[in-house]
Structures are given as structure tokens and as C-alpha cells.
């Protein structure tokens, strides 16, 4: 499977070491729409390919948005791309958030750090529906305020939906919550009959978040999470992203907790 050529339309810095690329297909040809929660494989010329979640508006056929943290050679090469520069793109791949199950439900979205990126298309999708946005509860935790993604958008969301943020470390001037994002959940009121929860963040944070939700009697069938493993081919052939009986690239990255809870609490799988 050969990548399509895309170019960087816009590049923004989220905070040092983390940036967002808005990319368009060469010659501005229409792009495949995607499901919130899916990912693309981004190829930096000669350096390699990395799986990066979609974080723009789904069903947009004009631009893909990807938020990327620089952690290795390939992401460093992607970081060096400037507006107009080209890259290869394969995708979209994977199974996304079950948007069809959100109708009529109270939505709980729990995001940690960069985990907000794969959830943003879901938030866009929910906001595009004619629904009571105050019934969308977002809990977002980050290391500190400067390391929060999409800060301008967070301010807008705070006006429309129920947003609670928390940081592990308060920097001077921070007026918000301090503490693990899961602490926000301990006092949150959740109707277990009528709520669906979506979680993405570091695995340990997802485990604690699930514990809190289970304490509030939310059934396992109402909890969805996005998993991360070493995805290489994205088509289920290379074997790298195997996680128990699943391939994260094609059976995930989004899973219903009910389907995978046995494996989720095992280590070194």
C-alpha cells in the first residue's frame, strides 16, 4: 500500500515539542472522510512512518489535522516540515469511537495529555449534532497548563459544554484544578443507565478512570477506550501491534472495555 502525497497547509505549535499539522492532498483532491478515533500513517521522506490519530473534524474532505509529539527520528522529521512541504499519508485506518451509540446518552469524555487529540473529532461530531451540549462532560488532565492541547478551543468548549480540566502541577497563575484527572471523577454524578464514556490517555490513567466509572456502576459495555501499541503496517499483517487476541491497528485502536477487560489488566501482553 503506497502513501498518497499530501502537503502541509498549516502548522501550529501546541507547546514546545508538540505541534499540529493541517495537511491536504496534493493538487487539493478530495480526501477520504474518516470516523472519529481512526488514525493515519504519516511518512516523513526517508525517515519512516508513524501512526498518528485524526484530530480534525470528521467527514471533512478538505483537510486532515494531526497533533504530533516529537519523540523519535520520524516525528523529528515531521516536526521539521513547514507549510508547503510534502509528506506521505496512508489511511484512515482502524475502528473508531462508536458515534452511533451516543444518541440520547449523557457523554463522559476523559482525556489525559495528548489523549485529547483522538477525542477531538468525537467532540466535533457531538457538537455538530443538535443536542444539549451541556450533557457532554469533558474531563481533561495534563501535566501543567502550558502542556494542554488546543487551549483556545478549550475556552470555547467551556462556554458550550461541561468542561473540567485539571493539572498535575500548578504553574504560577494557574487558577484551575490541581490533581489527577481521575480525582474530578470521584465527585462527578454519573447516571449509570444513561451514560457512555470515552477515554484516551496514558494506560495507567485509563485504568484509574475505569475504576472510578465502575465504582459509579457504569457498565463495562458503556466504556470505550483507545489503545496504543507499536503499529507499523496498519493493515493487520506485520504483527507488531498485537495485543492478546487483537490487532490494535484493525480491531482497535478503540475498544469497548467489555470486550478487552481481561487483557487490559494484564501486564506485558
Amino acid at each position: 500500500m503506497i502513501p498518497d502525497i499530501f502537503y502541509v497547509k498549516r502548522r501550529t505549535e501546541e507547546y514546545p515539542g508538540t505541534f499540529t499539522l493541517h495537511i491536504k492532498k496534493k493538487d487539493d483532491q478530495p480526501q477520504t472522510s474518516f470516523q472519529p478515533g481512526q488514525f493515519n500513517m504519516l511518512y516523513a521522506f526517508g525517515a519512516g512512518e508513524v501512526p498518528i490519530s485524526m484530530s480534525g473534524a470528521p467527514h471533512s474532505t478538505s483537510v486532515y489535522i494531526h497533533t504530533i509529539r516529537t519523540v523519535g527520528l520520524t516525528t523529528q522529521a515531521l516536526e521539521r516540515l513547514r507549510e508547503g512541504d510534502q509528506l506521505g499519508v496512508r489511511g484512515p485506518f482502524g475502528r473508531g469511537w462508536p458515534v452511533e451509540k451516543t444518541t440520547g446518552k449523557t457523554i463522559v469524555i476523559i482525556a489525559g495529555g495528548l489523549g485529547l487529540a483522538p477525542l477531538r473529532p468525537l467532540i466535533y461530531h457531538l457538537l455538530s449534532k443538535n443536542r444539549d451540549a451541556t450533557d457532554i462532560h469533558i474531563f481533561y488532565g495534563a501535566k501543567s497548563q502550558p502542556e494542554m492541547l488546543y487551549s483556545d478551543e478549550l475556552k470555547n468548549w467551556a462556554q458550550q459544554l461541561t468542561l473540567q480540566t485539571s493539572v498535575d502541577m500548578a504553574t504560577p497563575g494557574w487558577q484551575g484544578n490541581v490533581g489527577a484527572v481521575t480525582s474530578l471523577l470521584t465527585t462527578a454524578k454519573i447516571d449509570p443507565e444513561n451514560t457512555i464514556a470515552f477515554i484516551c490517555g496514558p494506560e495507567v490513567m485509563m485504568r484509574f478512570a475505569i475504576q472510578e466509572l465502575i465504582k459509579k456502576n457504569l457498565p463495562r459495555t458503556s466504556i470505550y477506550l483507545s489503545m496504543e501499541r507499536n503499529m507499523k503496517c496498519a493493515t493487520g499483517h506485520c504483527g507488531h501491534c498485537q495485543w492478546g487476541p487483537t490487532f490494535i491497528c484493525k480491531d482497535g485502536p478503540v475498544f469497548c472495555y467489555e470486550e478487552i477487560h481481561d487483557w487490559f489488566h494484564r501486564t506485558e501482553v
Partner: peptide, 17 residues
């Protein structure tokens, strides 16, 4: 056993990968 990995390389000019 079917697992595989990929390797991306460039030549010295950096123009061919």
C-alpha cells in the same frame, strides 16, 4: 509465523528513499 518489519532508508544525496 508472519511478522515483518519495515526499514526506511535514503541514499547519501538524501533525494532517493
Amino acid at each position: 509465523c508472519f511478522c515483518s518489519s519495515v526499514e526506511d532508508t535514503t541514499d547519501l544525496s538524501g533525494d532517493h528513499a
